[in-house]
Simulated scan of single mutants.
Amino acid sequence: MLKEGEKAPDFELPDMTGKKVRLYEILKEKKVVLYFYPKDDTRGCTKEACTFRDMYEDFTGQGAEVVGISSDSADSHTRFASKHSLPFVLLADTDKHVRKLYKVPSTFGLIPGRVTYVIDQQGTVQYAFNSMIKPLEHVQNALAALKRI
């Protein structure tokens, strides 16, 4: 995992519509809560995404944008975001390149990990959290970290 104080690697991935989204372009305007999750429409991932949705205004009120990343396709993200009315972007890391850049560990070497980073506008990781079994803590902890920076 990346550690607090490390520079967040820049990347570009397609969003739900296929449009390329670049991290450092978002950082020109806002801080970023970058969360990696295992799979669209699974129990823990849905709880996490819906909690980010329900607290989205709290995040934007802190000058941050929420960005979710999984290995699912753009089409899968479109269905997931539509089904749960997600107001933030989901990016398709189908080849797991960005997951590797961010050193997101797998569980049992098979299940893609769940890691959340809070990145300031200078591109520095200010907070990092890794937990497969506590999806809601990712949201609460990220908001608390934003309030500290």
Rank of each mutant, 00 (worst) to 15 (best):
R148S: 15
Q140S: 14
R114H: 09
G44T: 06
K47D: 04
L91F: 09
T60Q: 12
M1H: 01
V66G: 04
I69D: 03
K20M: 14
I133G: 08
L146P: 10
Y37L: 08
D120Q: 11
T116S: 15
M55Y: 07
C45E: 01
L136M: 07
A81W: 02
Q140P: 00
G63S: 10
S71Q: 11
D58L: 12
T46Y: 01
F36P: 08
L34S: 09
F80G: 00
K3Q: 14
L34F: 06
S76Q: 00
A128E: 12
V89Q: 13
Q126H: 09
N141R: 15
V89N: 07
K83D: 11
T94H: 00
L23I: 05
M1F: 06
F52A: 01
L91K: 07
V139G: 00
Y24Q: 07
G113P: 08
V98Y: 04
V139W: 03
L110W: 04
P87D: 10
M1G: 02
C45W: 00
I69R: 01
K28Y: 06
K31I: 01
V33H: 03
K134A: 14
G109M: 03
Y37T: 02
S85H: 15
E48Q: 15
S70G: 03
V115N: 02
G113W: 05
I149E: 08
D41S: 13
Y117L: 12
D120A: 01
K103M: 07
H138N: 12
S73Q: 03
K134R: 15
F80R: 00
K47I: 03
I26D: 06
D15L: 01
F108Y: 10
H97F: 08
D120M: 02
P14Y: 05
R99E: 11
P38G: 09
D40S: 01
Y35E: 06
Q62S: 14
K19R: 15
R53M: 09
K47N: 02
G5S: 12
C50I: 09
Q121A: 03
R114Q: 10
P38N: 08
I111E: 08
T17N: 14
M1Q: 03
F52L: 11
A128T: 15
K3E: 13
A8D: 11
L91A: 04
Y117T: 07
A144H: 11
F108S: 03
T116F: 10
N141M: 14
D15F: 10
G109S: 04
F11W: 14
I69S: 03
L27Q: 12
Y102H: 05
T42R: 02
G63C: 11
P135D: 12
E137Q: 14
K3M: 05
L13N: 05
Y56A: 01
V139N: 01
I26P: 01
G123C: 11
G63T: 10
H138Q: 12
Q122V: 01
H77C: 02
F129V: 05
K83L: 13
Q62T: 01
K3P: 00
L91R: 06
F108W: 10
K96R: 14
F36C: 07
A81N: 02
E65C: 09
V139E: 03
R53E: 04
G18V: 05
P135V: 10
M16Q: 14
A145L: 13
D72R: 05
L101V: 09
K47A: 09
V98S: 07
A145N: 14
S70M: 06
P105T: 04
P105H: 10
L110C: 00
Y127V: 02
F11I: 07
I26M: 03
